[in-house]
Design a protein around this nucleic acid. Structure first.
Lengths: 346, 346
DNA sequence: TTGTAGGCGTTATCAA
DNA sequence: TTGATAACGCCTACAA
C-alpha cells in the first residue's frame, strides 16, 4: 500500500511523480474543468483551439495519459481482445502477425496459452472478467464452449478451426484443397503406395488434412494406404514412420504428413535410422510451410499457408463484429500455395 | 449502442442476458446489499456461511463474474503485466513459459511484439495507459526508456538483456560462461582456426556471446579468428559463412555462431553449397538449444538455455516487486548446459 | 456480521 | 464551447 492519505482533489500541485497524473490534476493545473480535459482526448469533440492548447500544455508538463481502464469502464470498450493459442510452439508466426495487426489498430492483445486443451474453461472465465471486446481462438473448443461466446455476446473468430454446423466465424486455410494438390503431385510422379500420418486425434484440422488426402487418393483409384498418428511433434513423426514400416513391412512410395514438423521427423527417421534416400526411396510431403521446411537439409514439398492474409482476415473480421454486433457469422477460406521442394521424386 | 434507458438499480430482475450481471444485480436477486456480494469474492473477508450460500446461489443463477476492470480501478492492481517481445519468431518457448507461469498465478499477459526496435516508445506509452502492474522485456531498450519505468514506478524485469551499469532487474543466461564451455570443447578437439559469427549489431546478447568466445580464444593463445555478422536468421548464417570463406580464402576448423539458427544455416551452407563435411571438414557450434538444433540432420553442439528456470525467475522476480515496491533491482544469471551433438569433431 | 456511503478516473448528458 | 453532475462496477472504511 502506497501511503496516500489525501483525498483526490486536495493533493498539492507539485505532482510528486509517485502517482500517475489524472485528468483532475491536469484540469487544476490548467485552470479548466475536468470534462474539458476529457474532451481534448476525444477526437471529434467540440473544443476551441485556445482551450486545447492550454490543456495540452499542462498534459505535457504533468506527463498525463488517460487511464484506459477507467475509460473502458464507462465506454464498455476495453480495446483489448483475447487471443487463445493452443500450442505456441507450432505457430509463432501466427501470433506475431495477429499481434502486430491488432496493435496497428490500437487494440491490445491479452494472451492466453493452453497446453492442456482441457483448461479452456478457466481461460474463458477470465476473458469475461477482463471485458475483452472480442476473441481470436486458435485452439480447439467444445461446442458448448463456443456457445458461451454467443451467450455473452462476445464476438469470436476461430483461426484454422472450423465448426461445420455451428454458425460461428472462422478463417481457415483450405486443408482439403491443399491435400488434393499434394496428392495430385505425388500421383503424377508415379507414387503408388502411401502412408498418411495424422496429428492429434482431437484436432479437426488434422482430421481434415488426412481425410482430404485419403479421399483424393481413393478418387484416383489408389487404395494402398496405411495410416498412423502423431501429435504434430518432430519425435512423433519419427515414431509414426516406424509404425508405418511395422504395419506394412516395407516403406511406401510416399508419406503424407499432417504438418511440416512431423514430415521433417519422417525425413530424418528415413535418412538416419532407416538409411533410406529421400526422395529416392521415399517421398515426403507436409503442410503449413514453416520456416524450417525450406532449410536445405529438408527442402520439403508442402502447402504454404498464407499467414499474412489469414491473420489480416481474422483481425478485420473480429473488429468489424466488435463495431457492429449485428454482423452474421462468416467463414473465410484461403487457398494454400504448393511449394515444390526436393523431398518428392518427380 | 444497446438500448438500455433505465438507470442501474431499477432494471427488472429477469436479467435479459444482453448485459453482464453486476454485483448489484446479484445483490437485488439475493436480497442483500451490494457490499455483501463484493465481500463474498474477497477471501479472508468476514461473511457468514448463510450469507455466502445465499449470495453464491444468485451468482450461479445469474452467471455473475466480477468485472476485473472495475476492480482494478479501485484496487490499483490490474493483475495484468506487459510482455514485450522483440522478435517472436526466435523464441516461442520463452513466451509460452512466461504466459503459463503468469496465468498460474492469476496474472494476465498483455502482449506487445515489436519488429522494429524503434517503435518501443509508443508501446511503452500504451503500457501506462493500461495500468499494467509490471513488465517483462525481452527486447532492447534505450537507457532513457529504461528510466521511464523507474519514473513511473512500474516494476520491470529484463529477460536476457542486461544493462551493465543501470540498476535494473534482469534474468540472463550466462553468455560468457557458455561460450567458454564451447571454446574449451573446440580447443580440446584440436581446432586451431576459428570463425565467429555474430548476430544483429544492436544486440547486447550477441555482443556478449561473440566477445566471450573471442576473449576465451585469446586467453588460450589462439589468434586465428575471423569475424562476420548476421541477424540471427538462417539465411544470414549462410551468407555469413560465405563471407568468412571469402575473407580468409579457406574454411576454418570451427565456426562459432551467436545462435542456433545461424549455426544451422552455416551447416547447410557448408554441406550443400560448399560441399564440406560437418564435422569432418568443419565444426559448428551454436547457442540457445532450440528444438531444431537437436534434429538428426543437425544434432548441433550448443548451449542449452534453461528456459524454464529463467522464465520462473523472471515471473517471480517481477511479481515480488509488484507486491513490494521497495525491493531493490536484482540481476540473476543462469548457467547454460553444454549439449554435445555431432556437429563438432572430437 | 451486515449495510451505507464515498471514491477509483473516466465518459456522457445537459444546462449555462 | 464549457462546466456541473451523474453514471460505469467495484472495493472499503465506518457505522449499525
Amino acid at each position: 500500500m502506497a501511503a496516500r492519505p489525501e483525498k483526490n482533489p486536495s493533493s498539492d500541485s507539485s505532482h510528486t511523480g509517485r502517482r500517475q497524473a489524472t485528468s483532475y490534476d491536469v484540469a487544476r493545473h490548467a485552470g479548466v474543468s475536468q470534462s474539458a480535459v476529457s474532451r481534448c482526448f476525444k477526437d471529434g469533440a467540440s473544443v476551441s483551439k485556445k482551450m486545447r492548447d492550454r490543456v495540452m500544455k499542462s498534459v505535457k508538463e504533468l506527463g498525463y495519459q488517460p487511464n484506459a481502464i477507467a475509460r473502458g469502464l464507462i465506454t464498455r470498450r476495453s480495446n483489448m481482445v483475447g487471443v487463445i493459442v493452443s500450442n505456441l510452439n507450432f505457430y509463432p508466426e501466427v501470433l506475431s502477425e495477429l499481434s502486430a495487426r491488432f496493435t496497428d489498430r490500437g487494440v491490445h492483445v491479452l494472451l492466453f496459452t493452453i497446453d492442456h486443451e482441457s483448461d479452456v474453461g478457466r481461460i474463458i472465465d477470465q476473458l469475461w472478467q477482463y471485458q475483452v471486446d472480442g476473441v481470436v481462438v486458435a485452439a480447439h473448443l467444445e461446442q458448448d464452449q463456443v456457445a458461451l461466446f454467443e451467450e455473452r455476446n462476445v464476438p469470436v473468430v476461430f483461426y484454422n478451426r472450423s465448426y461445420q454446423d455451428v454458425p460461428v466465424s472462422s478463417v481457415c486455410c483450405d486443408q482439403v484443397e491443399g491435400e488434393r494438390k499434394l496428392v495430385n503431385l505425388l500421383v503424377e510422379g508415379q507414387h503408388h503406395s502411401f502412408a498418411v500420418i495424422g496429428g492429434p486425434k482431437d484436432s479437426v484440422v488434422s482430421m481434415q488434412r488426412t481425410q482430404g488426402a485419403i479421399d483424393r487418393l481413393h478418387s484416383l483409384g489408389i487404395s494402398d494406404i496405411v495410416q498412423a498418428d502423431g501429435d504434430y511433434t518432430y519425435q512423433s513423426g519419427r515414431v509414426a514412420l516406424q509404425e508405418v514400416v511395422k504395419q506394412r513391412g516395407t516403406v511406401p512410395d510416399a508419406i503424407i504428413c499432417a504438418n511440416d514438423i512431423m514430415a521433417i521427423g519422417c525425413m530424418d527417421e528415413a535418412r538416419y535410422h532407416l538409411n533410406l534416400d529421400v526422395p529416392g526411396d521415399v517421398s515426403v510431403v507436409g503442410f503449413d510451410g514453416v520456416r524450417s521446411a525450406s532449410w536445405s537439409s529438408y527442402d520439403l514439398t508442402t502447402i504454404q499457408q498464407p499467414v499474412e492474409s489469414m491473420a489480416e482476415a481474422a483481425v478485420s473480421m473480429l473488429l468489424d463484429r466488435v463495431d457492429n454486433e449485428q454482423l452474421p457469422p462468416e467463414k473465410r477460406s484461403f487457398s494454400g500455395v504448393l511449394r515444390r521442394g526436393s523431398s518428392v521424386r518427380e
